[in-house]
């Protein structure tokens, strides 16, 4: 067995804090896939809400990083995708468009709300800006989601929209309202 002689290159304190928060948010994203909350009469997960929260509270850099961590862990075997599934096949499967653009959604939310790497308190941001950020993020995720579904299952774009996106819209509108309510509560501090 070899003995390494190199010195320890410590990670900076602010990076450790943001990294730990990103890892726990990724774990929250994974856990929320297993918790079905009845939304608009249909059991749904809170994953889109966690994407919003990633952008709002971790910003445009660590927010998408948290979601990328979630995707990596799921691909590598953590049972954190819908229904407790995992593996590369899920990320490249029919809902791959949604999953792969979740980090983009978090990045857009963070970029619009924080307008840079220095994070602001989301509770102090003008409310229409928050709403705009959530709408843009949702629109991008949905667009990629149903176009990917249409491509991977070889069906018409309209059919793909009806199957993959339309049933999710009522639930995600409520999650946007919940995200706004979380921000307005001012109970959580952005990192």
């Amino acid at each position: 067995m070899q003995t390494e002689q190199g010195s320890v290159d410590l990670v900076e304190g602010d990076v450790v804090r943001a990294f730990a928060r990103a890892a726990l948010l990724a774990a929250l994203m994974g856990a929320s896939a297993s918790v079905a909350v009845p939304i608009a009469g249909v059991p749904g997960t809170l994953q889109m809400l966690v994407v919003f929260l990633a952008g709002l509270y971790l910003g445009p850099v660590w927010g998408p990083f948290a979601i990328v961590l979630y995707l990596f862990a799921g691909v590598l075997g953590a049972p954190i995708f819908s229904g407790g599934s995992s593996g590369l096949g899920v990320v490249l499967g029919q809902y791959g468009g949604f999953l792969l653009t979740f980090p983009v959604g978090a990045a857009l939310t963070g970029a619009i709300v924080h307008r840079g790497r220095n994070l602001r308190d989301p509770a102090s941001v003008f409310l229409p800006i928050i709403v705009l950020a959530l709408v843009v993020a949702t629109a991008v995720v949905y667009l990629a989601g149903f176009l990917w579904y249409a491509w991977v299952t070889d069906i018409a774009v309209l059919d793909a929209f009806m199957i993959s996106a339309l049933p999710l819209i009522p639930g995600d509108l409520l999650k946007m309202a919940a995200a706004v309510a979380i921000v307005r509560s001012g109970l959580i501090e952005a990192t």
Binding site: A23, A27, L69, A78, I80
Partner: peptide, 9 residues
């Protein structure tokens, strides 16, 4: 991070 996600989920 992947290790932490496995641990904390």
């Amino acid at each position: 991070g992947v290790g932490l996600v496995f641990r904390f989920v």
